[in-house]
Design a protein around this nucleic acid. Sequence first.
DNA 1: TACCGTGCCGAAAGGGCTTTCGGTCTTTTC
DNA 2: GAAAAGACCGAAAGCCCTTTCGGCACGGTA
Lengths: 341, 341
Amino acid sequence: MSNNEGPGRTVTLSDVARSAGVSIATASKALNGREDVAPATRARVLEAADALAFTPNPMARGLLAGRTGTVGVLTSDLEGRFMIPILMGAEDAFGAGQVNVFLCDARGDAIREQHHLKALLSRRVDGIIVVGRQTDPRPSLGQDLPVPVVYAYSPSDDPRDLSLTPDNYAGGRLAVEHLISCGRTRIAHISGDPSYAAAQDRLAGAHAALARAGLELVGEPMFSMWTEHWGRDAAAMVLQRHPDVDAIFCGSDQIARGVLDTARDFGRTVPDDLAVIGYDNWEVLARNSRPELTSIDANLQQLGRQAAQRVFDAIDGVDIGEGTYHLPVRLVIRGSTIARQ
Amino acid sequence: MSNNEGPGRTVTLSDVARSAGVSIATASKALNGREDVAPATRARVLEAADALAFTPNPMARGLLAGRTGTVGVLTSDLEGRFMIPILMGAEDAFGAGQVNVFLCDARGDAIREQHHLKALLSRRVDGIIVVGRQTDPRPSLGQDLPVPVVYAYSPSDDPRDLSLTPDNYAGGRLAVEHLISCGRTRIAHISGDPSYAAAQDRLAGAHAALARAGLELVGEPMFSMWTEHWGRDAAAMVLQRHPDVDAIFCGSDQIARGVLDTARDFGRTVPDDLAVIGYDNWEVLARNSRPELTSIDANLQQLGRQAAQRVFDAIDGVDIGEGTYHLPVRLVIRGSTIARQ
DNA sequence: TACCGTGCCGAAAGGGCTTTCGGTCTTTTC
DNA sequence: GAAAAGACCGAAAGCCCTTTCGGCACGGTA
C-alpha cells in the first residue's frame, strides 16, 4: 500500500555514471556493449551499475528506438483450456528476453477485439499474437497494421497472414495408426460438434489411416458435443449396434471419459475387449481415468513458443513468411490402448 | 506482416499542433482537458487530432511521472485453474476502463518473481495484483513499493498488505450444513494435501457445522492428494470401514469424481444411499459426472474483479485498507446430494 | 489616460536514455 | 623529434510529451 517517493527513488543512468566517475554517454556505451570503451572503464561501470541495482528505464529507451519491448496477446476466450498452454509458451519465450506481455481477452466479441487492438496499438506494442478458440479460420485483423501479427490456434482466413495451428489431420491419422498397430480392426469414431474444423480434420486423418490399411470405420462417425455425457450416450449406441467393435477413437478426452464409463457398464474391459483413445491429452482427465487414457497431445505450449519466436523474428526484420503452418502433434500412450505388462 | 516506416509514420503531438495552428503546449492542454484553453481553440485541436488519428505515445507520457494506465498481474502458476477466473475477473474490471494488463508468470519461482516485479516497476505500472496458487499465505513483496499492491487468492503474510482470499472455512461449513439439511448424519470427509491451508480451513468449517448440529465426522478425515485416484481409494476405505456412512464431503471436485466412481463399484446409489459433495465447482468435472456434482463455488471471477477494483481505488488515492479479507463462497446444488424430483 | 486584473497562449525545461561527433591523450611511423 | 593514426571519452542533441511560468491583449476600474 505504500506510495512513498522516499529514498527508494529509482536509480538512473546518471547515478551510475557519477558513481563510476564517467560521463553518461560512456556509461551507456559500457552497459550496452558498444565500442570505444576501455575494458577497465567498462568493468568499473558494470560494477557501479550492479552495486546500485540499476535497471534502464524502458520508457526512455523506447522513446528513442521506437521499440517498447512489449507484445500484445489478443485472445478470444481466456477460459478455454487451449489458451493457457499457448499463453504459457509465449510468455516463456518472451520472458527469456526483455519482453513483457499485454494480455487482452476479447471474450469472443469482435467489437471488443477491435477495441483491444486499438488499445494495444496505442501502447505501441512491437507485435501481436492472436489466439483463437477453435482451429477454424477466423477473420484477419487486416494487412495494414504497423506491427507484425501471428495467429495461433485459429488460423487467419487471409493467406497473406502467418498462422500456426495444430495438425489435426495428422492427429487423427496417428490415433488410428496406433489402434491398428495394436491389432484393432473394428474401429468406431465418436467426436464432438461437427461444425468444428477440428472434428472434420481428425476424421479425415482417421479415414486416411484406415484406407491405407484397407479398413473402414465401424458404423457412421458420431458427432454431437464435446462432453462426457455425449461420450456415454454415443458409446452405448455404438456398443449396441456394433458389438464386435474393438476400438473407439474419441474426438476429445472428455468424450473418451464418457466412453470408458459406458464400456464398464457394458461389461467390456479396457483395453482388452475395447481400446479407447482420446484427444487433447488433458492430463486432469487422461491421467485420472481407469485405465489411464491414451491420447493425442497437440503440443500447444510449443506452439505458443513458436508463435512468440516468429513475432520476435518479425520484429527483428526477419521475413517470417506467410500462410498456415500445421504443427506436429504427438501420441501419448497409456493404459486404455495397451495393457501394461 | 507489414512493418513499414513509410509515410505512415506515427503522428506526434507536434503534428497535431501544427495542423491546428497552435503551440505544442496548447495542443497538449486541449487534449488533456486542462484549463486555460479557449473552447474554440480546444475544438480546433480535437478536430485536428481526430483527423490525424493521433494517439499519444505512452512512452513519452510515462517518462514523466504520470500514470501509464497499466496494471501488472504477477501470477505464480498460470497453469492452475484458479488463476484463470481471477485473471478474467481482473481483466474484466480493467477492460472497462482504459487500463491494460501486463501478465507475468513466475512459475512459482521466487527469483523469477523478483525479476518480473522489477520489470513491472520499470515499466511504471500503476498497480500490481499478485495471484498465488494456494490459499496459504505467501511472502509479502514488501512495503516500500512505489505502487499499490493487492494479493489475490494467496494472502500476504504481512498484515499490512491487503489480501483477498476465498473463505474456505465458510465453504466447509456450507457444505456440511447442506448435507445435514438433506437429512444426513453420518458424514465422512475426504480431502487432499493436508499441508494446504485450504484443506485445513474447509475441515475446520465442517467441524463447526457438525458441532452445531451435535454431530461428529464418521472416522478420521482422510488426506492425501487432490486427485481422482485418491478419491477412489479413499472412498473404498471409508465404505469398507464405515458402511453406515450416508454422505461424503470431498475437498475437491476431482476427489468427488473418484468417490462417485467407487460408490458405484460398491453398489451404492448417489444420492439416495450416499450423498457426495465436491469443492471448487469445476464445471467440466461437476457437470459431467453421473449424477452431476453438488459443489462449493469460490466466486473467483468476482474475487479477481474486486482485486482490480481495489487497485483502481488505491491508484485514485482512496485508502483501501489492509489485512486479509475472506470473500464469500456459494453452494451450487446438483444431483449428487438431492435426487431430482 | 493610466493602471490592474483576467483569460489565453507559447517558450522552454525536463524526464532517462542513445548516438553522433568532436576533442584529448597516447601510441606508432618515417 | 615531428606528424599521423588510434584509442577513449564527453558534450550535446534528440525522442515525445507535460507542466510551469512569463507574455500579450483585452476589458474594466479609478
